[in-house]
Amino acid sequence: DHYHLDPFITFDVSRSDHYYVQVMGFPYPANASQRFGNGDGYIYQLLLTDRPYMKASETLKEEGSVRLNLDGWNLHDVRSPPGRADILPRYSDRATEEQRRLIHMKNLSLEKEPNDRLETATGISQAARGSLDHPEDMDWYRWSPEAHTWYQLEVQSGRLGYEGDCLLKLYSEDGKEMASNDDAAGMRDPRMEWQSKDPQTCYLRVSSLLKSSQPPTRYRVIARPMRPSCHLTLESERLNIQPGDSQELKLSIQRTFGHSKPILIKALHLPPGVSMPLVTAEANQKEILLVFHAAHSSRSYQGPIRIMGVDLDNRWNQYVAGKETVTTSVNNGVPNGYLDQVFTKVLDPWLTLTSASEGMDNEEP
């Protein structure tokens, strides 16, 4: 597993010879068995290349100038003028916002040694790039958050292909520890949510949990302001109903970064004869039942529908509900976790409306 479920290998060819590549597939979602899977759903594309490959890029601020840094393999023939970030390819629309931030990070400050103590911390505005050069190395960063703001604090290292296991800690101006994180969602990189209170200077400390001899670990440390938001998760991605019947579907609400407002839930693209009353999830409510009803006169139908939530006080804040493809909050056996996978949900649940007579005709003996 690389950024998500697909494997990725870099290999330095030391001599000309015959090599073999073996591709195998595991059942999905991941389980504890060691069995391989196969069938019509196991379609893949295999790419073998010695062309330049960019795994990440950064624009770095250095004493009034901006420099574009490319990180990857076989980049010795790649040339780019300083500050030209527009040469980067356009990212896929299917990539999540988190993945876009992972692939290309703008305006990183550079770590300035020595910064192994609070008193010599490197000042940053939002993000910096640094390196843990030995097992006992600790890098301190001075940071001034805005008051009463939610932040996502994280370190990107393992997801960029480095071997370290980083620890992130947050300290107050007087050196008291306020928050810390080691591994988020089963991956080696730390990530945590934190809300600032009164205006103050804070300190971020990055260190390694691997105390044995290891090569230098590069990383990015990021303090990103976040807006209140929520994730709507359906109990199932399928809804089966017959004319004259009603069907319930549970909707879970995960609120993040201080979201606590009422949300109006509605269904779109319903076929004629099928309805779902508007419902409101009150402030801090975590679950709600959606009730779908099909009139007796409803005709057979199969197709996607959409379930959305909107903040009552701001209709521009909209959330699309879906069924999670995998559990993103726990380590379920995949080495790097599922935190930054491309598809985290199956959107637009599938509605099947079948009359009782059709159901009997199609029933197997």
Rank of each mutant, 00 (worst) to 15 (best):
E63L: 07
L234W: 01
F257C: 07
R100Q: 12
L132V: 06
Q302K: 14
V206M: 04
K266T: 13
R51E: 11
T352P: 01
E62H: 14
D174C: 06
L102N: 04
R100G: 10
D116H: 09
S246Y: 12
V330Q: 11
E97K: 13
Y151H: 07
R90Y: 08
N74A: 09
M192K: 02
A321Q: 02
Y219Q: 08
I263E: 05
L5I: 14
N331A: 15
W150Y: 15
H134S: 13
Y301L: 00
A294Y: 03
Y219G: 07
R306F: 04
S157Y: 01
R220W: 06
L167F: 14
V326W: 06
F36A: 13
G333R: 10
S180F: 09
Y219E: 00
Y91H: 12
I222P: 03
A184K: 12
K286C: 10
P349K: 06
M308Y: 05
H296Y: 11
M178L: 15
Q247M: 12
P335A: 12
Y171I: 00
R306P: 07
D12R: 13
S329V: 04
L60R: 13
N332Y: 10
L160C: 00
L60F: 02
E364C: 08
Q341H: 11
N31P: 08
E177Y: 07
S157E: 05
S80M: 03
R94A: 14
G186W: 00
L132F: 02
D40L: 12
L239M: 10
S298A: 15
G303Y: 01
T352Q: 10
D6W: 08
N332V: 09
D348C: 09
F36T: 15
A321N: 03
P243Y: 06
L160F: 08
S157L: 05
I253A: 07
G309V: 04
Q214F: 08
K55V: 11
V310P: 02
A128K: 04
D6P: 04
R117W: 01
A85P: 06
A85H: 10
P271I: 00
L249D: 02
L75D: 02
A267E: 01
I103V: 15
V310S: 15
A321D: 00
S355T: 15
N336C: 09
D50R: 15
E248F: 12
N181V: 06
H4T: 09
D340R: 13
P81S: 13
S180Q: 13
H231M: 14
N115L: 01
A267C: 10
L48G: 03
H4Q: 11
G244V: 07
H259C: 10
S298F: 05
R84K: 14
D6A: 10
L249Y: 09
N362H: 13
I265K: 08
G337N: 04
F11R: 07
I43W: 03
A127S: 09
D311E: 15
H18K: 11
K197I: 02
M192S: 02
A127P: 03
S260E: 13
D93Q: 13
S298Q: 03
P7Q: 05
P228E: 08
L102H: 08
